[in-house]
Simulated assay, not measured.
Amino acid sequence: MQIVKLHATTSTNDELRARFRESDTQHLTALYSLSQSQGRGNRGTQWQSDDGKNLTFSVLIKDGLFEMTPFELNQIVSVAMVEWLQTDLSIQAKIKWPNDILSVQKKLAGILIENTFSNGKWTHSIVGIGLNVNQEVFQDLPQAISLKNLTGKTFLLEQLLLQFLTHLDHALKNRAVAVSKYLSHLFRYKQQTRFEINHQIVDATVSGITQNGELLLEKEGQLTAYDLKQVRWIY
């Protein structure tokens, strides 16, 4: 486990990937930056963060990948994040499928995992995470919230990162247990929720996840699987 600190970069995922290509970077190397100009989120969005106030970092995963699937890695990272927030910081959190982390129904963190394959073999993954920490105002982002908003406290970024990495390491070493906990932490699990599907607003019950990571929704007695591009939460 190693932590690399940068004052500024375009993207921690890109920076860590470049370092991995150029040198023998160890498993669970984490790179974080106080300023990130081109941080990415899911659906091609950009992660917005005030410089020096939040934790924007990437972690290299390269051990044990042959024993899991890409979605299982997503589950492990998401569960590690939620359980770290709950146990170490007493923050109640949920996983909004597939990997947004919510607290009081607002977005506290986002996860973007980029997997690399060579000759059909999964060689490594870069796990990019943005966690809102000490920022108090989110311009034009009414659904965002930070640890400081929730607790009134100011946090040390590197201390938080080290705590999370310890939980992630534990979850990776106990991956079957972590995967089994994903549904228990899933936002609105077994509850009826409103979604936009095929440009229509529908009410459906969150029923689970497929092995490939699709969201299972039940509406009018019928169970249907959706991928990320097909469905949008409305809550």
Rank of each mutant, 00 (worst) to 15 (best):
Q2S: 05
G64K: 03
T224I: 14
G130Q: 05
I234F: 04
E214L: 12
A144L: 00
I209Q: 11
L160N: 01
V4K: 04
L73G: 03
V79T: 09
N149T: 12
I111V: 07
T25F: 03
G64Q: 10
L216I: 15
Q46S: 14
L6I: 06
G39E: 04
K62T: 14
S90E: 08
K219F: 08
S180N: 15
K106Q: 08
V231M: 07
W84E: 06
S23D: 11
N119V: 13
N99G: 05
E196K: 12
T25P: 02
T10C: 10
F71T: 07
N13V: 01
G44N: 04
S180P: 08
L73E: 04
K62H: 07
D169I: 08
Q200A: 01
T12R: 06
Y235A: 12
S207N: 15
N54P: 05
Q26E: 11
D24A: 04
G128C: 02
G120W: 02
T224S: 12
N212L: 15
K107Y: 10
A93R: 02
K96R: 15
L112T: 00
R232T: 11
N74F: 02
T193I: 10
D24T: 07
V77T: 04
A171V: 07
D63P: 01
T151G: 01
I61W: 11
S103I: 08
D50C: 11
S90F: 10
N119W: 08
G120P: 03
Q200V: 00
K153A: 10
D227P: 06
I145K: 04
S146Y: 05
K121C: 13
Q92M: 07
